[in-house]
């Protein structure tokens, strides 16, 4: 076992983990944050996407020990003071989700995208989401959601009240 200290959504956790524990299993099983999903075993679907020190990563392909000392943000940590992140609001507004399983990863990946490209074109959005698979939406409304969120954020909106 190895002891790790990880900050998840701003809260510090100290846990003993088997070195083989994947970050996604640490999040889901050790600290009970089940919003991050596992959709594949070949690092492709992106359902497990979280932010590791601010960058989007596939938490199924990161060992929990690699996150020792790091800051992790999951879908559960996106709201601020009870207000939805613009991407969360936009995914609902644009019907960018159906079964909801890929959604947390899709949103986290989009957060990463907009953090370094605040005004992506449709093509850039589609390209940036190549590591996140959705089987329900055909991506049409996901792309729209990211565009809406980009506009909201450009207009200075940081968060949207949940209704």
């Amino acid at each position: 076992m190895a002891e790790i200290n990880v900050s998840v959504n701003g809260r510090a956790y100290t846990r003993d983990v088997e070195p083989r524990t994947l970050l996604v299993h640490f999040l889901r099983d050790a600290i009970g944050l089940t919003g991050t999903h596992v959709g594949c075993d070949t690092s492709q679907c992106g359902a497990c996407t979280v932010l590791l020190d601010g960058r989007g990563v596939k938490s199924c392909t990161v060992l929990a020990v690699q996150a020792n000392g790091a800051q992790v943000t999951t879908i559960e940590g996106l709201e601020t003071n009870g207000a939805l992140h613009p991407l969360q609001a936009a995914f609902r507004e644009a019907h960018g989700l159906q079964c909801g399983f890929c959604t947390p990863g899709m949103i986290m990946s989009s957060v990463d995208l907009l953090s370094h490209n605040p005004h992506p074109t449709e093509g850039e959005i589609r390209h940036a989401l190549e590591g996140n698979l959705c089987r329900c939406t055909g991506y049409h409304n996901i792309v729209k959601a990211v565009q809406i969120a980009a506009n909201t954020m450009a207009a200075g909106g940081s968060a949207v009240a949940a209704d």
Partner: peptide
């Protein structure tokens, strides 16, 4: 807008 979305966009869906 969908009633089910608030749980899915906040990671509180239950699969």
């Amino acid at each position: 807008r969908r009633k089910e979305d608030p749980r899915f966009i906040t990671g509180t869906g239950r699969y």
